[in-house]
Design a protein around this nucleic acid. Structure first.
Lengths: 201, 201
DNA sequence: GCAGATATACATCTTACAGAGGTATACTGT
DNA sequence: ACAGTATACCTCTGTAAGATGTATATCTGC
């Protein structure tokens, strides 16, 4: 997903709602897009400058003369147009880099029980996120009348479905692998005296 | 996930199974880790050099004297040790950058029906991957006796659960948003003659 | 047996961007 | 008045993704 400057799109999307400063944008991305989009601190300011130079946003407050003045940006018609065009393009998928599953895949090369511990830990984190999301959802319920409300609902639902599946997998997998790893460990200790069976490959 | 050189770990993991060349590694990552790990073409060779310099792998074929000779690498004890230590560390999560959900989130700023089309397209792709995974799984079933077989099973199961959830979400969401977008479009065309209601914000 | 096409194997270069740090201003207690 | 801390904004640097380049091996038809 390099070479695409995908940072610009969440910025344009948020500026469609209302004018914001770089700092606000950072906070909004962190707060509302968090579950499916994370932005790097250092990418927002360069991107704002690029968007301003290409006329997709304008600075409506702050002259950049005195230092550290609050700079507020608003989207232009061109920006809205570009965003619209981008939305119509087919979305590209992030190339997966799932360390958790990679460690599961090579669990036999790690220390005894380490990966099972990761799975238990993962289960717990997912459960925590699940509770947090449910709480946030009840907060958002108050804005039922917002035109974007139905879309927000579907996004909550997406998170809920994924987390449910994740939890189910953790439970299944622990049930399947826990007895197995115990048995293997026993077998290994039994044979280690003789031939180091566990090192064979 | 920068600054971590995470590319080294799938390489070490694969070399635990058997010695391979850079080209082989690329093919193996593409073929077997594909569903949760993707590696960039240009990252494998620099990483191999780094691993060789730090003594985690050794070249067992190919002298790098004559050009374009096949270079085969094997893991060393140090490499195995490092991998083991890494597996024990808590896995870090990839920061999400889901263009698909981002477009869903801002669907009202895109052209009429564009995002619904993306959702239908997504549904179809997931269904295709689902069928492909099922086929691959029947192939792997033949290696029931492999020590890694139970782990492979859980990884297949992970993919299956996620894809099921994904499909369910697509169906739900299409059912929820299709009638809505149609109604809004009608309302918009009705009022556009008067006040451009759709532009209000 | 060789000319051209294609696949394989390896390498480099450019650019996006994550992470961390830095600086200036505003506020707050003493 | 002054130190300490929080806020708002901005910069720098290393890592790695992805594109692209190039050399060698293998195949194909004539």
């Amino acid at each position: 997903m390099a070479r695409t400057q995908s940072t610009q799109y969440p910025i344009l999307g948020l500026l469609c709602i209302k004018p914001l400063s770089g700092y606000d944008l950072r906070a909004e991305i962190e707060g509302t897009l968090n579950s499916f989009w994370r932005e790097s601190e250092g990418q927002i300011y360069p991107t704002l400058r690029m968007l301003e130079e290409t006329g997709q946003i304008v600075r409506i407050e702050g002259q950049r003369k005195q230092a550290r003045e609050r700079q507020v940006y608003a989207i232009t018609d061109l920006g809205r147009q570009r965003l619209r065009a981008w939305i119509a393009e087919e979305p590209r998928m992030q190339s997966p880099r799932n360390e958790f599953l990679l460690k599961v895949w090579m669990m036999r090369h790690g220390p005894e029980g380490a990966v099972l511990a990761h799975i238990r830990q993962h289960r717990q984190q997912v459960a925590i996120r699940m509770a947090a999301a449910a709480e946030l959802q009840t907060l958002v319920e108050r804005n039922r009348s917002f035109p974007d409300f139905p879309v927000w609902q579907t996004l909550f639902r997406y998170g809920a479905l994924m987390r449910e599946a994740e939890l189910a997998w953790c439970d299944e997998t622990l049930a399947a692998l826990e007895p197995l790893e115990r048995r293997e460990a026993k077998a290994a200790t039994c044979t280690r005296k003789g031939k180091k069976l566990i090192e064979q490959r």
